[in-house]
Simulated scan of single mutants.
Amino acid sequence: MKTLILFYSTYGHVYHLAEAVASGAREVAGNEVYIKRVPETLPPALLDQMGATAAQKVFEHVPVAAPGELADYDAIIFGTPTRYGNVCGQMQSFLDATGGLWAQGKLIGKVGGAFVSTATQHGGQETTIRSLHTELLHHGFVLVGLPYAWQGQMGHHEVTGGTPYGASTVAGGQGERQPSENELEGARFQGRHTAEIARKLAAI
């Protein structure tokens, strides 16, 4: 079984969640886990202006995925920052290039899910994941979220991400906050849970 963690990250927050999701997925026996990123669409000068260039060096070693290779995996978990309550442009551009896969039904029956980073607690975590879910459903994915079996999303004693739709983190208005241990645990749970569902479906 093969699982892909596919992400876009501007300042590293989604990348750290992606690593945690992959860590959880690796706990499932016989599961080959790959982490890849979607291509950057912003010019280098703008990334410099945004202060993103240095942050992205942390994950520049991660290979860039091509749309066609999505058909090679049994499960794909997508990670994206939010943009006004929706998927970021880089991830959307990548998904827009999967029309050929859609036309051939290549992703029907794959197991899919999503995780996200937002600046604030109410900055679109759930709407962003739900909008990504809509695209995955058009491709025929079987969706897996982050069930309440993970109790970390039930607490209210600290600022934390985590939704029943997928793992999430709160980055802060200036990107100053990195994923907490609770948020990373939610991501690990999602990776493990998604891989377990994919394995069960593969055995049918």
Rank of each mutant, 00 (worst) to 15 (best):
D96T: 04
Y84L: 13
D72I: 10
C88F: 01
M1D: 11
E126F: 12
V62Y: 05
K106P: 01
S131G: 00
E19M: 09
N31C: 13
L17K: 04
V33E: 00
V142W: 10
I5N: 03
K57L: 15
H122C: 08
L95E: 00
A65K: 12
Q174K: 09
T127C: 06
L47Y: 00
H13L: 02
G85P: 05
E32V: 10
R83K: 09
T163Y: 05
F78I: 15
R192Q: 12
V62A: 01
H16P: 00
G155W: 06
A198P: 10
A171D: 10
Q178N: 01
F78Y: 15
A195K: 03
R37C: 04
Q104Y: 00
L47C: 03
L47S: 01
G162N: 08
A75Q: 08
A114M: 14
R188W: 09
Y148A: 11
L17H: 02
A171C: 04
F94Q: 01
E27R: 14
T160M: 05
Q190L: 15
T128S: 02
G166P: 03
E185K: 14
G186E: 08
T98P: 01
I5V: 15
A55W: 03
E176A: 05
I77C: 00
P164R: 13
T120N: 10
T118R: 02
E19W: 00
A20P: 00
G123W: 10
A52Y: 10
A202N: 07
H61V: 06
D72N: 13
D96W: 04
Q49R: 12
P147V: 13
Q153S: 14
V33Y: 04
G99Q: 11
S9H: 09
T128I: 04
A52E: 09
I5M: 03
Q125G: 08
P63R: 02
V111A: 05
R177K: 09
A71G: 02
G162V: 15
A75C: 14
G162Y: 11
Y73P: 14
H122V: 11
M1F: 03
V28W: 07
G161T: 13
D96E: 14
A18H: 03
A66P: 00
G166F: 14
T80E: 03
M50G: 02
H13K: 06
F141E: 03
P39G: 06
H193E: 09
P147Y: 13
G145H: 11
P44G: 09
Q49V: 00
Y8N: 02
V58I: 15
